[in-house]
C-alpha cells in the first residue's frame, strides 16, 4: 500500500515537472528528428526543422506573412513566432528562452542582446517606423494638427516615456515645439491605439504601421515634422541557436526585396 502510494506521488510529480520539460524541449526534438529524415531522403541538404522567431509586437502582421512565405518556400520548416514588447523578449532570451532569431523595434533593445553576447554577428537594420497622430473617426475634439492635440483639455494618450514609442513621442513634441499634456501614458503602443479606437481618447500617438493596420477604425493625421523621430528595426540571429542555417535564411528573406515589399506595404519605412 505504502509503496504504491509513494510511486503514485512520484508519478504525479513526474507528470507535473515532465509536462513543462517536454513542452520546453519539444521544439528541439521535432527539429532534430525531421533533420535526420530529410538527410536520409535527399542528397541536397534541404532546410528543415523548427525556427523560433522572437519579434517586436509591431511586426506581428508582417512577420506572420513572412513566416508563411518562408514555410511555403521550405516545406520541411516550421516557423514558431513569439510577439511581445522588444524589451520583454530580450529579457526572455537572456534568461534562456529558446529563440533562433530576434527582431527588435529599436536599436537600444538590440544592444542589450549584443551586450549579453547573444547576437550572432552584427544586427541588420531592416525597417524603420515613425509616429503619427490618430483620432477616432468621429473626431470629437476636432483635431486637425499635432498642435491641436497638444492643447489643454484634449484627451491625448501617448506611450510612457520609458517605452520606445513614448520616447519618440517626447522628441517629436520637442521637434514641433509643443508640450504634451496627456491624460494617460500607456505601457504599450497597442494600448494607445485601443484607447483611440474605443473612442475614450480624443487623440493618440502611434506608429504609422499601427495606424494603417487599424484601417477605418481611426483617422490618421500626419505630424508634419521636417525630421521626425525614426525608430530603426534590427534583426539578428541568436548566437546559441541550434538552427543557424534556418536563422540566416529567414533574415535573408526579411532583408530581400520580397520581405522589404511586405514591410513597406504595411507602412514601414526603408531601413
Amino acid at each position: 500500500m505504502k509503496l504504491s502510494l509513494a510511486s503514485l506521488a512520484a508519478l504525479a510529480s513526474c507528470l507535473l515537472l515532465g509536462a513543462t520539460l517536454a513542452s520546453c524541449s519539444s521544439a528541439g526534438d521535432t527539429a532534430s528528428a525531421s533533420q535526420e529524415s530529410s538527410a536520409a531522403g535527399s542528397a541536397v541538404p534541404e532546410l528543415s526543422g523548427t525556427l523560433t522567431v522572437f519579434a517586436a509586437a509591431s511586426l506581428k502582421s508582417t512577420f506572420t506573412e513572412l513566416a508563411t512565405a518562408f514555410e511555403t518556400a521550405h516545406p520541411q520548416v516550421k516557423v514558431s513566432l513569439n510577439f511581445d514588447g522588444s524589451a520583454t523578449l530580450v529579457t526572455q532570451i537572456t534568461q534562456g528562452a529558446p529563440a533562433d532569431v530576434f527582431a527588435s523595434a529599436d536599436t537600444a533593445t538590440m544592444a542589450k542582446l549584443s551586450e549579453a553576447k547573444l547576437a550572432a554577428g552584427t544586427p541588420v537594420d531592416f525597417a524603420s517606423n515613425v509616429l503619427t497622430l490618430v483620432v477616432p473617426p468621429s473626431n470629437p475634439a476636432n483635431i486637425a494638427s499635432f498642435a491641436d492635440a497638444a492643447k489643454t483639455g484634449t484627451k491625448l494618450v501617448i506611450c510612457a516615456p520609458k517605452v520606445p514609442c513614448g520616447a519618440a513621442a517626447q522628441s517629436d513634441a520637442t521637434a514641433a515645439g509643443l508640450s504634451l499634456q496627456p491624460v494617460s501614458e500607456e505601457l504599450s503602443v497597442t494600448s494607445v491605439l485601443g484607447k483611440v479606437t474605443s473612442g475614450e481618447a480624443d487623440a493618440g500617438l502611434v506608429y504609422v504601421t499601427d495606424a494603417r493596420a487599424a484601417q477605418d477604425k481611426v483617422t490618421t493625421i500626419p505630424l508634419g515634422l521636417a525630421s521626425p523621430t525614426v525608430n530603426e528595426y534590427l534583426i539578428a540571429a541568436v548566437s546559441n541557436s541550434a538552427h543557424a542555417d534556418l536563422a540566416a535564411a529567414f533574415i535573408a528573406l526579411v532583408t530581400a526585396p520580397e520581405g522589404q515589399k511586405v514591410l513597406q506595404d504595411a507602412g514601414f519605412g526603408a531601413p
Binding site: 514588447g85 524589451a87 520583454t88 529579457t91 494618450v157 510612457a160 520609458k162 517605452v163 496627456p182 491624460v183 494617460s184 501614458e185 500607456e186 505601457l187 494600448s191 485601443g194 484607447k195 475614450e200
Partner: peptide, 27 residues
Amino acid sequence: TLTFAGSLQGVTRTLPLEIYLQRESDP
C-alpha cells in the same frame, strides 16, 4: 485598471502598473 482607467502618474498609475512599467527600463 490598465484597460479601463489608463496610466498616468499620481492619477491612475497604481503600484502594479508602475511595476509593469519599471520592469522594462529599471528591473
